[in-house]
């Protein structure tokens, strides 16, 4: 591979790209510490909006509901997505594979309004036909989130499985492991970083969803995005700036942590490595 290097031109594009991506969020974070009620006019440093946020029962309840749904949805989606990923990457051709593949790919690009509407109509029709689900709320949001998150997890898992040397599982079987044991003791541990990545992605997708949840929710079940949306529809608000800052900081910390863990693992590998010559 030829040496990679930065040219002035590529540095310029990196600067433009990252300025575009990060300046809006930076401004948001900065003005969350603004004393003034007028969001865009600086009137001195203050943390009063964080205190106000803490007092806001509606937002706190919504955040807790969102977290609960996201935890459960990400876990279920990881389970379903792992199974689906194995089926797609390992089982070759089976009846219905084309349909299966399409149902995995379509949710990735399906406009949310369509997914949301179709699921709501399903729940309403099922309630009429079989009396389930009786109420719409956390349960129906969870089902909706599991459905579209499964597609994302499947893509990640199937991709990682596709890169794996198929000889690994064969070697395990050759050494006396049953196919199931070979999967559990060899493939699954190697797959675990991909599973974690899939879970995290599903978690953030669920936490972030507004449109689908708006369709399938029922009375009393307002997730955080639903509450935030009804607030920002009326215009900018310093309290939302504070909430946004908390979200941004949390995600950044998680990312830095993940990067640090990955870096440490790589460093540990390098430290023990010898020159390739024997």
């Amino acid at each position: 591979m030829t040496a990679r290097r930065s040219t002035p031109w590529s540095r310029m594009w990196l600067a433009i790209g990252f300025a575009f991506l990060y300046l809006p969020m930076l401004v948001l974070v900065l003005y969350s510490f603004n004393e003034s009620r007028l969001v865009t006019v600086w009137a001195g440093f203050s943390t009063r909006w964080y205190a106000a946020l803490w007092q806001d029962r509606q937002i706190i309840d919504a955040a807790l509901l969102s977290l609960r749904i996201a935890l459960l949805a990400a876990s279920a989606a990881t389970l379903l997505g792992t199974l689906a990923g194995i089926a797609l990457a390992r089982f070759g051709r089976f009846p219905g594979r084309g349909l299966f593949g399409a149902m995995i790919t379509a949710p990735l690009v399906m406009p949310e309004v369509i997914t949301g509407l179709s699921l709501l109509l399903l729940f309403v029709s099922l309630a009429q036909l079989v009396g389930w689900p009786e109420h719409r709320g956390a349960l129906t949001i969870w089902i909706a989130h599991v459905t579209f998150c499964t597609a994302y997890v499947t893509v990640i898992v199937a991709g990682r499985l596709g890169e794996l040397d198929p000889a690994l599982e064969e070697a395990a079987q050759d050494l006396g492991a049953t196919p199931l044991r070979a999967f559990l003791s060899v493939t699954l541990p190697i797959l675990s970083p991909a599973l974690l990545a899939g879970w995290l992605l599903a978690f953030t997708l669920s936490l972030d969803d507004l449109v689908i949840a708006s369709f399938v929710t029922g009375p009393g079940a307002s997730t955080l995005p639903i509450v935030v949306f009804s607030s920002v529809r009326l215009g900018v608000s310093p309290k939302i700036n504070a909430l946004a800052t908390i979200l941004i900081v949390a995600v950044t910390l998680a990312a830095v942590l993940a990067l640090w863990l990955a870096g440490r693992q790589a460093a540990r590998r390098r430290a023990g490595a010898m020159p390739a010559a024997m």
């Binding site: 948001l28 865009t40 935030v228 900018v236 990067l259």
Partner: peptide, 20 residues
Amino acid sequence: LLVVLPSWTSFLIRVYAWMG
């Protein structure tokens, strides 16, 4: 990571940032 990071924060928040 810097490219992906914003998409892990809230979509709604990123749209909202432009309102301000």
